[in-house]
Nucleic acid binder design. Structure first.
Length: 477
RNA sequence: CGGGCGGUAGCUCAACUUGGUAGAGCACUGCGUUUGGGACGCAGCGGUUGCAAGUUCAAAUCUUGUCCGCCCGACCA
């Protein structure tokens, strides 16, 4: 490769993941820092990526009967504090509005850290009968959590997400809903974003404040740390009792509903970046790439054949994929580097040699493989290539996850594996909070999800007491 | 929130130790030549040295405070 003498290159991904990550976020033009601490600006390219991810989730929410709605950003303190465990869990990271219109408010208003309180309050007004159930509502919005240490996408004070909030007449139905949405999260992460995850229930320590049970999908980052990429909660009747969500059932008894909530944030973009990116920058899975193809024309002075061909190529491709024709003045090499940094899955080069032979040159972002395909076959071949890229990214990421997941059954191996901080450690576990805290103190790792019951007779890999479950452990973001 | 590092042009940095007219490369603008892996020439534009106080004849430089960013830790749906 040419040495980058004019333009500073980013650190290699393997050398300094943190710095690499920050540089990719900025230089791919996804985000920029702002004068507001911990808050990022999502630039058009980053927002386009988010919109495409949103669309994938949203169509699945709609297909399972959910409707979008919107609730207030500001939540009166008196509502927020109704569910004791919930408030306690969020208290440290709530931002408060204490003044309005130049006057001190009689009651301060929380900027929503999540919307159970306000949505629950509204549901109590909307639900009277079993005929009103289930309520299946989702909200796309921003929330604020006053974090101490922030990073683009992974942890910001303000972030974009969706939060689904549902109410059901029975516990079984609510439980089913929670699993249904978790499975949608897994499906989008793995099949659309090509980001493999482990899926399961959270331990008591890791559970959402106020939940009876929390389930999550967790992805594995290249530095061996786990990233929570989506959660789905069963609340039992905790929130319906706190917010008075009651209905008269078919048996004429007045009952509290069973509620759930489930959420995915733009954090998943951070996961994507780290999962697929390489030394040249971002690598986007085709389904959510704002541009799936970038056409780079290469022209000699006075050439009059390349641009018309490139325009025709763009028009042809526009009917099957998201495509951009890069007709800026920069040199081809400069454009190659830029589109690589920005993660465009396929680059199509068209120059005099291609035009003369009635072909185009296609370069895959994931493998950097170059191939020549007949001009007339482009519209047919490109979608197939994009699918190959998706499959290849998914397979490679899956291989990574598997390669960095180890099983440990005895204490020495378990502790050693966790201290290596090299991915997931799957181990039989007693499921005691105290044991998890001890493990954390010694290794910095905690359970990420509980995968299922332990085998008969197994003992906890750490404390030696009888094992109840098999759990994945790792350090986390 | 604790420990460490940093903030000078859009970016990367020099000038700071030893106070004395704020510089370079890249980027940007114009013109010309170029275009198959970050092109070249010429001419330009670009600064409240993060912010605020203090010391001094004089502060990018010394002192204090503060804000922001990065790393490690703690904390954290």
């Amino acid at each position: 490769m040419q040495e980058k003498k004019q333009v500073k290159s980013i650190p290699r991904k393997g050398d300094d993941l943190s710095e690499w990550y920050t540089q990719v976020c900025l230089r791919a033009q996804l985000v920029d820092y702002t004068p507001v601490r911990g808050c990022i600006a999502l630039r058009p390219y980053g927002f386009a990526l988010w919109e495409l991810i949103q669309a994938e989730f949203d169509k699945r929410f709609k297909a399972t009967g959910h409707h979008n709605a919107y609730f207030p950003l500001l939540i009166p303190e008196s509502l927020l504090i109704k569910e004791a465990e919930h408030v306690e869990g969020f208290a440290p990271e709530v931002a408060w509005v204490t003044q309005g219109g130049g006057e001190e408010l009689t009651e301060r208003l929380a900027i929503r850290p999540t919307s159970e309180a306000i949505i629950g309050t509204m549901y109590s007004r909307w639900i009277q009968s079993h005929r009103d159930l289930p309520v299946l509502i989702n909200q796309w919005c921003n929330v604020v959590r006053w974090e101490k240490a922030t990073r683009p996408f992974l942890r910001t004070l303000e972030f974009l997400w969706q939060e689904g909030h549902t109410v059901h007449a029975s516990e079984a139905e609510a439980a089913e809903e929670v699993q249904r949405m978790l499975e949608i999260y897994r499906e989008v992460a793995e099949d659309v974003l090509a980001m493999p995850v482990i899926k399961g229930r959270k331990s008591e320590n890791e559970r959402f404040a106020g939940a009876v049970a929390t389930y999550a999908i967790e992805a594995l980052m290249p530095d061996g740390k786990a990233l929570q990429a989506g959660t789905s909660h069963e609340f039992g009747q905790n929130f319906s009792k706190a917010y008075d969500i009651k209905f008269t059932d078919v048996d004429e008894q007045v009952k509290f509903g069973y509620t759930t909530s489930w959420g995915v944030s733009w954090r998943i973009i951070g996961g994507l970046i780290m999962t697929h990116g390489d030394d040249r920058g971002l690598v986007l899975p085709p389904a959510v790439a704002p541009y799936q193809v970038a056409i780079v024309p290469i022209m000699k002075t006075g050439d009059e054949t390349v641009m018309p061909a490139a325009v025709q190529l763009r028009n042809t491709l526009a009917s099957v994929v998201r495509v951009t024709l890069d007709d800026r003045e920069q040199s081809p090499g400069w454009k190659f580097s830029e589109w690589e940094m920005r993660g465009v899955p396929l680059r199509v080069e068209i120059g005099p040699r291609d035009v003369a032979q009635n072909v185009v040159t296609v370069v895959r972002r994931d493998t950097l493989e170059k191939s020549t395909i007949p001009f007339d076959d482009v519209a047919a071949r490109v979608p197939a290539l994009l699918e190959e890229i998706r499959a290849s990214l998914a397979a490679r990421a899956r291989k990574e996850l598997d390669a960095h997941t180890v099983v440990a059954t005895d204490r020495a191996a378990f502790v050693e594996a966790l201290k290596r901080q090299d991915g997931f450690v799957l181990a039989p576990w007693c499921e005691r909070s105290e044991c998890e805290l001890d493990i954390k103190a010694e290794t910095s790792a905690v359970t990420r999800v509980i995968a299922g019951p332990a085998d008969p007779g197994q003992v906890c890999a750490y404390c030696g007491k009888p094992a109840k479950v098999k759990a994945y452990f790792a350090r986390s973001y």
